[in-house]
Design a protein around this nucleic acid. Sequence first.
DNA 1: TATTGTTATACTCTATAACTATA
DNA 2: TATAGTTATAGAGTATAACAATA
Lengths: 164, 164
Amino acid sequence: MIHDNLPGHAHGAPVGPMDGMSDHELDTDWVDQQIGYRLRRASAAMAADYAAAAAGTGLRPVLVSMLSVIAANPGVGQSELGAALGIQRTNVTPLTAQLEADRLVVRRPSRTDGRKVELHLTDDGVAALAAGTQLIADHEERMTRHLDEPERRRLLELLERIGR
Amino acid sequence: MIHDNLPGHAHGAPVGPMDGMSDHELDTDWVDQQIGYRLRRASAAMAADYAAAAAGTGLRPVLVSMLSVIAANPGVGQSELGAALGIQRTNVTPLTAQLEADRLVVRRPSRTDGRKVELHLTDDGVAALAAGTQLIADHEERMTRHLDEPERRRLLELLERIGR
DNA sequence: TATTGTTATACTCTATAACTATA
DNA sequence: TATAGTTATAGAGTATAACAATA
């Protein structure tokens, strides 16, 4: 009886609309129970908050994450960097070019491998990373202000276990 | 001492690389501790898995979610629908147009409000929703197979509390 | 042959501004 | 004046294919 599982055909204990969202009185029970949907919504809310806080700085999340990995791994190559952050090589290229154009990163040809360029932060890059780190710390604090520290860690742990 | 909080300057108990991700040996401790980063990675992993499963069907997640809300709320308007799902009116228009072009939804002018169009599923729309529901159920099961049911509910609950 | 980096390209998602028609 | 829907457009994010240089 496949239709028992369909949206609009409530069955079992009705969970009701999730606390605090009026949604103009619409029934959204089905999507509200999906991890994928909730992930997208939460991720979008995070992105909007960060964008508002970082407006005008040019410090997009992906750029700050790249700066942080380069800082922790001086001389890292673009492919390595991309693999670590889940960004394809082909997309790392223009991102790195922007960091270089903004004088936050220098690209140095490797002496041991002629194909590779090694990435390092400039002094401006270190300063930009400090600014980005503060932006993100404040942003994370705002968005998780209704979670205590164990809950925050629990959320991180559960997110790590998605899909593996 | 602001630099104490900077990536590349480990402090406190080192958490180490998260279990199971080799990352080519790179240090990514800083981003690994961020909710925003983990949300983006988890959301991307979910999107990739669903896209592979739904390839060729045209049943994008946003379209299935729209079908589900229309099914549960027959006659819903486009603005209401968008508000319920976090999609702007301006972006609902082309999505609805596609559902209509695919004969999954009909748009009927409201008799009580000349500005409004009321959305209803066609028989094909009901069938497409059934197919999409199954795709998403299987997809959610795959991606959360390492979580038990209490953990799954706990994750949903924590995600709801982000940013509010 | 495989890997690093590049270019070109395209599609999705999201956002703003400006418009219409109705209320 | 506010709301429902539309059009046009632009920016990010992400994807594939094809290529050059090097290993």
